[in-house]
Amino acid sequence: MTDTDGRGAPSSAAVARLRLVIARLYRQLAQASNDDLNLTYAQLSALARIQEHGPLRLGELAAYEQVAAPSLTRTVAPLAAAGLIAKQPDPSDGRSWLVSVTAQGSDVLDRIRRRRSELLARRMARLDAGQLDALLAALPALEQLLTEPQPAAGDAPGDREDAGARR
């Protein structure tokens, strides 16, 4: 089996293999940091995004998370109930609220990140020098994979340029 399709593009088998490795590794990292709060992926993502960009209006957070505002409201309600985020009135618009991460929320995120990093560090320590060098050399390429914008809901991946014309 080759890793390319003969034209330099990755083979479908190589793409599937990479996808599976990333998904399984993420699942293992998530399980290793499972917390008493049993936060969902969406809740953790929202909490981290609030910490990174907050204080935020829920509409801004929904845009960052690429979800509808009502869906996000259901996501953040348990975070507020658990004391991980705080809501305060928006001083520039009395009809809106701002959400920010509490000290407890920051502690939870720090603990989760630490546990995930510890697991990954242990796994990386088992690699031989050549494997570790290859993994570290792949980091810029993997980071580049994160930069492609996500298609809007309902858009096919190849229809991105046409999406604006349809709206």
Rank of each mutant, 00 (worst) to 15 (best):
S33C: 08
Y26E: 15
L135V: 11
L142R: 07
L25S: 14
A156M: 09
L98A: 03
L58I: 12
G130V: 12
S100A: 15
G8A: 00
V21T: 14
E161T: 11
A137K: 09
L120I: 08
L145Y: 06
L119T: 04
T75L: 00
Y26T: 12
D93V: 02
A125Y: 05
S12R: 07
L18W: 08
R7P: 02
D5H: 00
A129V: 14
G54Q: 00
P70R: 06
D155M: 14
E118Y: 01
L135W: 13
T40K: 10
D162F: 13
L146Y: 07
V15H: 00
L142I: 13
S11M: 02
G83F: 13
A13T: 12
R115V: 02
V67H: 03
R24I: 07
A30I: 10
A165S: 05
P55F: 10
A62V: 10
V21N: 07
L98I: 02
D90V: 04
Y64F: 15
L58R: 03
Y64Q: 11
G94R: 01
K87S: 14
D93K: 01
P55V: 09
A152C: 04
D128M: 07
A77T: 15
R166M: 11
L37R: 15
Q144N: 12
A156E: 10
L98S: 02
R49G: 07
A81H: 11
L79G: 03
L56C: 03
I22S: 02
Q31I: 09
A103P: 04
P140H: 08
D5P: 01
L127T: 13
Y26G: 07
A156H: 10
T40R: 12
